[in-house]
Amino acid sequence: MTDAIVPDTQHKGLVAALPLPWRHYASLARFDRPIGWWLLFWPCTWGLFLAGATSHWVTVGWLLLGSVAMRGAGCVFNDIVDADLDARVARTAARPIASGAVSKRAAWAWIMVLAAVGLVVLVQLRWQAQVVALGSLALVAAYPFMKRVTGWPQAWLGLVFTWGAPTGWVEATGFAHPAPLGPLYLGCWAWCMGYDTIYACQDREDDALIGIGSSALSFGRHVRAGVTGLYALALLGWAGAIWLVRPDPLALVALVPVAIHLGWQALTLQPDDGAGALRRFRNNRFAGLLMAAACYVVGAAA
């Protein structure tokens, strides 16, 4: 790496001001790193808006709260499972469970608290969306083990972290009119796999040393080409979904801003520049906003 890796435990903002015991739990849930819940949240809005529910702002608020809580619970579970691996990676060695600052038993209790918040959100949704949302639990539970059995764990993460798209779509439509959901979810999957490959560039050396899988390793010298291809597939899927909602070439123009942004990310990526990779990964919060705007425009006009 040409730039020093920033440890996950360098806190900022309100989390840094918390008393130490509370700071550990906030760190476990990544409350000081909002990029994760934004990436989980944006696909929820894409499904909701593209399905025409462009005025359901209360639902948007509930989905944001659910994204914060469930992303936090997922991070705690991931840290419980990965404690041994985290202790061997420079960026993650000081995480609360890996360092021994929080016991696994206390971490499980924290998961229950976060899951309770998620349950409150779940009951706000129509029953069909509840069924879809609960369908993600098996995927979430399996994800931390994927890096141990495959060189492409980001492919599994793409299934997990974009589950909000079908949840939002079904919240708006029930189980009627499912056709656009297939290409929408495909695009979401490819987008997630692309940005998490960028994120994984930070850990390539450590991952190789301890023998765990990563698409940033599996792509080898072709990381930039791989990310470019994934982002192209994302745009193709999203274009297909938009076309099925509104078969008008002008509707596809809504994708131009997000296409330009993802193109910039992919074409300027330097896989050996850890700090640059992290910046591009974080820029996907803006990419998500651009896609939400596209879905809003198309859904409102359909």
Rank of each mutant, 00 (worst) to 15 (best):
V76Q: 07
L217V: 04
Y231M: 10
G52S: 10
V245L: 06
C201I: 03
D273Y: 06
A165L: 13
F219G: 03
F49P: 02
G158H: 02
H56T: 15
A293W: 12
V6N: 12
P19E: 00
L209Y: 09
L217D: 01
Y199F: 07
A109P: 03
R95S: 09
T167M: 14
G299Y: 08
G187E: 03
L28I: 02
R279S: 10
G47F: 08
I80S: 06
A116L: 15
G52Y: 09
G158E: 01
A165C: 07
H177P: 04
Y199E: 05
G52L: 05
S27R: 00
V6C: 10
N284W: 09
K12W: 13
V68R: 02
A98T: 08
V68E: 00
Q128G: 07
V113F: 06
R221T: 14
A90G: 05
F281R: 04
I35G: 08
L63E: 02
N283I: 08
I210N: 03
A138S: 09
A259K: 12
W42P: 12
Y143T: 01
R282H: 09
Q202M: 15
I260S: 13
R33W: 04
R105W: 02
L262V: 15
T167N: 09
R126G: 15
G211D: 09
T197A: 04
V102G: 00
P144G: 07
L64V: 02
L233T: 10
A208I: 01
S103Y: 00
L233Q: 03
